[in-house]
């Protein structure tokens, strides 16, 4: 484990102690995923047996070489795919191929609906719930302001940049106030500055809502800066090689990137990932 995070690891366990021995918010046991062979394609062993516990209100980042099964794992936790073996629990209930209430997902691909305006995209998930019009408008407008899309409320996704469309998807998920937020490279299409700012905003939301976050990223910096724990995955079939505890205080901001420990964490992550990424590249 990372020696550098020892001091604040102590803080962390104190925090957990205060909450009592609560069951984890998300619990994975022996989760495996094998995509069966289709036509000429052989079966793909995407995910090796994986165990993971996410405490309520924690921020977990997933990092790993391309194609190692990160999105596969996220789909399983979201209830969008069933594991070949193993169990997934959310709030003490088993997830079985059906998305549980209270879980919000932002996908790796742009999933904004091109036939709806930005405003209606964001309101989409709310319409199903019986919320009165004024309350709905208030919530949508607030989230649009948060994601910097207020000026584009009446625009269609086709009129926006890729990064802005991704923000529409983030807004559409956040407006539902999920207790577990699953993010698959949500800032992938954004420039570095916007990324850092959105990261700060995400941290703020995380603190204010107390939601649990699981976020896939391919940026070492982003993982190290945002998360309490960073799960580093091996090349396919993916499994956790190490779960690094960052030990940042809960009210952190992007300014921690200037701390010495930040550099050590990313360096450690890279030392773990270098070899795996090479394996993944050769496999292709």
């Amino acid at each position: 484990m990372n020696v550098l995070s020892q001091t604040s690891a102590a803080e962390h366990s104190l925090e957990e102690g205060a909450r009592g021995a609560k069951a984890p918010h998300v619990h994975l046991k022996g989760v495996t995923r094998i995509y069966p062979a289709v036509a000429n394609n052989p079966e793909v062993h995407a995910l090796a047996s994986t165990d993971l516990d996410l405490p309520q209100g924690s921020f977990f980042s997933l990092i790993g070489p391309s194609g190692c099964g990160k999105s596969t794992l996220l789909d399983i936790v979201a209830g969008l795919a069933s594991p070949t073996e193993g169990t997934v629990m959310f709030e003490g209930k088993r997830i079985e191929g059906r998305p549980p209430e209270g879980v919000g997902v932002v996908f790796q691909e742009d999933s904004s609906f091109p036939w709806l305006t930005v405003w209606n995209n964001v309101a989409f998930g709310l319409r199903r719930k019986r919320i009165d019009k004024a309350e709905m408008a208030k919530r949508v407008d607030a989230i649009l302001a948060f994601t910097g899309l207020s000026d584009f409320a009446q625009a269609y996704p086709a009129q926006l940049s890729g990064g802005m469309r991704q923000r529409v998807c983030i807004a559409r998920t956040l407006v539902l106030q999920p207790r577990l937020i699953l993010l698959d490279e949500p800032f992938g299409a954004l420039d570095q500055q916007t990324r850092l700012l959105m990261g700060d905003e995400l941290l703020r939301i995380w603190r204010e809502t107390g939601a649990t976050i699981m976020m896939i990223t391919h940026s070492l910096d982003e993982a190290a800066m945002l998360a309490d724990h960073v799960g580093v995955m091996s090349a396919r079939p993916g499994k956790f090689i190490e779960i690094i505890e960052t030990g940042w205080p809960r009210d952190r901001t992007s300014e921690i990137v200037s701390e010495a420990r930040f550099g050590s964490i990313t360096a450690h992550m890279w030392s773990l990932l270098r070899e795996e990424s090479q394996k993944a590249m050769k496999a292709r």
């Binding site: 979201a78 969008l80 998305p99 919000g104 997902v105 996908f107 999933s111 199903r128």
Partner: peptide, 21 residues
Amino acid sequence: PIYVKASRSLNLSRSRTIFTV
């Protein structure tokens, strides 16, 4: 397929998925 995935993640019923997505 991402639209279908998105509507599944939003827990839409089948008829709602047909008419709104």
